[in-house]
Design a protein around this nucleic acid. Sequence first.
RNA 1: GCGCCCGUAGCUCAGUCGGAUAGAGCAUCAGAUUCCUAAUCUGGGGGCCACAGGUUCGAUUCCUGUCGGGCGCACCA
Length: 573
Amino acid sequence: MLFHIFQKHIDKALDALVTAGDISADTDRSNVTLEPPRDPAHGDLSTNAAMVLCKAAGMKPRNLAAKIVDQLTQIDDVASAEIAGPGFINLRVSETVLASELLEIDRLGPEYGRSDKGKGVTVNVEYVSANPTGPMHMGHCRGAVVGDALADLLEAIGHEVIREYYVNDAGSQVDTLARSAHLRYLEALGEDIGEIPEGLYPGDYLKPVGAALASEFGEDYRDGPESAWLLTFRKAAVAGMMDMIRSDLALLGIEHDVFSSEAELQAAGKPEAAEAILRSRDLVYDGVLEQPKGKVIEDWEPVKLPLFRSTQFGDDQDRPIKKSDGSWTYFGGDLAYHFQKASAADELIDIWGADHSGTVKRIKAAVAALTEGKTKFDVKLVQMVRLLRNGEPEKMSKRSGNFVTIADMVEEVGKDAVRFTMLTRKADAQMDFDFAKVTEASRDNPVFYVQYAHARIQSTLRKAADEGILPSDTHLDRLETEEFDLVKMMAQFPRIVESAAAAREPHRVAFYLNDLAAAFHGHYNLGNDRPDKRILMVNEVETTSARLFLVKNLGQTIRNGLALMGVEAVDSM
RNA sequence: GCGCCCGUAGCUCAGUCGGAUAGAGCAUCAGAUUCCUAAUCUGGGGGCCACAGGUUCGAUUCCUGUCGGGCGCACCA
């Protein structure tokens, strides 16, 4: 890749200065950067090498820069190297390199942008993990898309990725679910259940579960005590909910590799094992929590509980891993769960809703304690999405059973629009999702804008093919400056993928594609006033074939970017 | 009261482990349609990067404090 080639050139130039005795061999070069300058007028690439290394070299930045430039100008790929400002070195890339970059893109095709930087490192990404008490709704959507796109990104840079879903099937909310299902079971048996009582799940989605239970068990559990059926109904209801969730996720193109059950984890004694390890290191002790300050709790009473010393890791309070009735807290189970994940991966990433921000410290503390700091662990918080319809916020409330489901959204605007839109903001910023906007065919809808660029390219290729002209690399020397500018942008793609993966920020791909599409639309419109700038010139077969070769690969780059977001490119609109 | 996230153009947001004159879209104003998809494009105006200190050759970026907004704060997940 272009970028890596030039990184090597910089390295070579610095090596030469080492040989010349200007800088010492052990000088730290880790702060040396090579990046496209903000202002393209400054060149194609810019390095701060002279400014970063001048102290170690005992020279003024511009003097050191001059020596580096002397080395760089000897390299064929470097069209020019200039000192600017306080000591930047601005480079221009030769058109020969750009042409070979274009050939490289063509050779790699769908593989362009992928790398093996993360090879050998397994990353577990846990996302969605919605409670199995109902269908997927808006509140889950963004985390699902961000997690999935992040998993795609990590795979693109060569990581082995485990996509995981934690099923919270052990808490009291699944008892509530079982009771709600029992009511629907009675209903299926012909009883009049009336209004769903307060505290139970009212949604219709439990009706099929009740019906299935009725046909499986007949009247067996009609009159018996709750203890007779609770476990059976819990299992059946959770299974039903998970089937529903899986099919909702499939609508978004999301498929997890592993579903881990909290109940199974507990049955297998994992929390006990984790507790034993932590107790052996005096990181769990039996103690009493103080009443939190600034908040009045009426029925507060001191209780002795097994506490994890999360304060040793920066948390404000030690955290209980068991409740006073002896059952595990959510945290107690979660800590064991993360320990389990860590046994099969080198790095862990959790995608959480921002409403769980308060629990980040304790779980990070737990992972650090259990893996003795060996497992890298990141929690990515995803902010709320406000649903808008005609500019008016759309309310959703799970309690009333009245909420916008993912199935509704996908049906209304389509999978690709949902996914792309969810990636047009960085995850930790709040965002609005306006039903009208995401399907609008206009410049300010990036989904459309990027797709339109791709469709335009395909349309041009089709039209050219009708005229008997096909893309070809035999006359790339016919390409002009504006066209090489497009290649420069395309050449940034691998770097965007790398940095987006490293920063765990899939939205960067969306912004890049928007920029790339803008560059293409601009270039395309040059042909409006200047027929000689049109891609398709029927009487200029050689030039046209080269231009077609360029836009074909620009289309490929867009396609590859969209694929990283789980969005399919369209060939016509 | 405490913790986490955020504060960038009128609006919605980008801004690469600290870099050059802080960018884009919308809105606004002025233009391009006998032309490969004008569903698009070109240009103008618009900024105390919330505020005040600190670190640095250099701060929108890092640190501290203040103000403003969001989320969360016993055995609920």
